[in-house]
Design a protein around this nucleic acid. Structure first.
Length: 411
DNA sequence: CGTGTTTGACCGGCGC
DNA sequence: GCGCCGGTCAAACACG
C-alpha cells in the first residue's frame, strides 16, 4: 500500500511539472471547473465530452453518434462526474499522504536536533575533564566545535538560510568565541516575527518556557509591553515581547526575535522552524518566491487556510513580519462563518488542535506592521509563506501542553 | 531558600 | 550635545 501511495504522489506531481509529456484528463477537468465558475456549466459539459471522447468513447462513437446523442450525452456526464469524484478522492489522498510525509519529516528534524544537542553536551563534558594547559587550546576548539554544531542546528531550523551563511562568515572573521557569540546572536536576532491574536490570557502559549525580564510603557499605548526571554537553555538568544493592542485590548501582540539554540519540545518545533524560515526568507530576499520548505508540517494541517495579505516592514530596527490572526480588518467573505478565534491560554483547559484549526483559519491573514509608511515588501506574493506561518502557529498553539508553556508551570 | 516577577536605573540609538 | 525612546539590567520583593 505504501508503495502504491508513494507512486501516486510522484505521478501527481509529475503532472504538474511535466504537463507536456503527460497531460492527463483529470488535470484538464480541474482546470476548467476552477476557471469559470457558475457561468461555464455548458462549457464544462462540452469540454468533458471532448476529453472523454479522446480517451474512451472514440472507438464506439461512430456507431452511437447517430442513434442516441442524448444517451451518450448522459453517459458522458456521468462519466465526467465519476472522474471528478476520482479526482477529488485522489486530491484528498494526496493531502493525507503529504501530511504523513511532513509529520515524519518534522519528527526526523526534532530527533536530529536532540541528537546534536546530546553530542554537544557530551563533547563539552569530555573537554572539561582535560588538563588546564590543554584547556587553553581546547577552549578555542570547543568554541569552534560549538559554532559548527550551532550552525548545523541553524541549518536544520532555517533551511540553509542566508543568515546562516552570514554566521559562518562571521565565524571566520572573528577569532574569539565571545566575538562570535555576539555576532551570531546579533544575526540570530535580526528578524522578528510578530503574531497578533485574540487572547484573554496574559500570554499565548507557544510551547517554550519564558522568563519575564522587563516591562515598559510604550509610547502611544496605555498597555504595558512585557519582555520575556527563553529559559529552556542557558544563553538562548530568543526573546519575545507581549503587548495588548491599544485599540482593542482583546488583541495580544507577541513578537518573537531570534533562533533557539537548543532542541525544542515538539509542540514548539514547528513554530520555531517557521519563524526561522520566515526570517531566513526575509534576510535572503526570497520572500517573494515560492519556497516549499516552509510548507512542511503546515500546509496540510489547515489546507483551507488562505491568508489574504502579508507585509514586511523595515521601519523598526529589524525587519518584522506580522502575522495577524484577528479579523478586525477587512473580513474575507469566502470562508465559513465561525465565532471569533480565541487562543487558549495555559490556564485554559480543553485545548485541542481541532479548535484552533476550525476557528482560526477563516480569520487568518498577514497584515502590515503597525508602523506604516515605509513598507519594503509585500509578502502576499508568497502565499506559501503566509499559509505556512498561520498554519504553523495555529497548530502549535492548539498542541501545547500546559506544563510546557510557562516557567511557572514548569516548577 | 530557590525561583520568578516587579520596577527603577541604565544604556545605546536616533532625531533635532 | 541633548532629550526621547526602546530595550535591558539588577536589586528588591513575592511566592511556594
Amino acid at each position: 500500500m505504501a508503495m502504491s501511495s508513494e507512486k501516486r504522489i510522484v505521478d501527481f506531481f509529475a503532472n504538474d511539472q511535466n504537463q507536456r509529456s503527460k497531460k492527463t484528463l483529470s488535470v484538464d477537468v480541474k482546470k476548467e471547473s476552477a476557471q469559470d465558475g457558475p457561468v461555464s456549466q455548458g462549457l464544462e459539459l462540452d469540454t468533458g465530452l471532448n476529453l472523454l471522447s479522446t480517451n474512451t468513447d472514440s472507438d464506439k462513437s461512430g456507431v452511437d453518434d447517430e442513434a442516441s446523442p442524448n444517451i451518450k450525452h448522459k453517459q458522458s456526464s456521468s462519466k465526467l462526474a465519476v472522474l471528478q469524484c476520482e479526482l477529488d478522492r485522489m486530491n484528498t489522498e494526496n493531502q493525507r499522504l503529504r501530511t504523513m510525509l511532513n509529520l515524519a519529516n518534522n519528527n526526523y528534524h526534532h530527533a536530529l536536533q536532540m541528537h546534536i544537542s546530546t553530542l554537544m553536551q557530551q563533547q563539552k563534558l569530555t573537554q572539561k575533564t582535560r588538563t588546564g594547559e590543554e584547556n587553553e587550546i581546547s577552549e578555542e576548539k570547543r568554541a569552534r566545535g560549538g559554532v559548527v554544531a550551532r550552525q548545523f542546528m541553524d541549518l536544520i531550523g532555517q533551511d540553509r538560510s542566508e543568515s546562516n551563511e552570514n554566521a559562518q562568515f562571521d565565524a571566520n572573521k572573528f577569532d574569539t568565541s565571545k566575538d562570535f557569540d555576539k555576532t551570531t546572536e546579533a544575526t540570530m536576532r535580526k528578524v522578528r516575527v510578530s503574531v497578533r491574536a485574540r487572547s484573554e490570557a496574559a500570554m499565548i502559549s507557544d510551547g517554550c518556557q519564558w522568563r519575564k525580564y522587563g516591562q515598559k510603557m510604550a509610547k502611544g499605548n496605555p498597555c504595558p509591553r512585557a519582555y520575556y526571554r527563553c529559559t529552556m537553555a542557558t544563553a538562548c538568544p530568543v526573546r519575545k515581547q507581549v503587548q495588548r493592542c491599544a485599540e482593542d485590548t482583546a488583541i495580544l501582540t507577541t513578537t518573537y526575535e531570534g533562533t533557539h539554540n537548543h532542541p525544542l519540545p515538539l509542540a514548539a518545533t514547528t513554530m520555531a522552524a517557521t519563524t526561522s524560515a520566515a526570517a531566513s526568507m526575509v534576510l535572503s530576499g526570497s520572500i517573494s518566491t515560492t519556497n516549499n520548505s516552509l510548507l512542511g508540517p503546515t500546509q496540510t494541517l489547515i489546507p483551507h487556510l488562505q491568508p489574504t495579505s502579508a507585509t514586511l516592514s523595515a521601519s523598526s530596527p529589524f525587519p518584522t513580519i506580522t502575522l495577524d490572526l484577528t479579523n478586525h480588518h477587512h473580513h474575507p467573505s469566502h470562508y465559513f462563518h465561525k465565532p471569533q478565534p480565541y487562543f487558549h491560554a495555559p490556564n485554559f483547559p480543553n485545548m485541542n488542535q481541532n479548535f484552533m484549526s476550525q476557528n482560526v483559519y477563516n480569520e487568518s491573514k498577514l497584515c502590515g506592521l503597525e508602523r506604516s509608511g515605509d513598507m519594503v515588501g509585500n509578502v502576499t506574493a508568497d502565499p506559501n509563506l503566509t499559509k505556512a506561518l498561520v498554519a504553523a502557529i495555529t497548530s502549535i498553539m492548539g498542541n501545547v501542553h500546559p506544563q510546557n508553556v510557562t516557567s511557572r508551570n514548569s516548577n
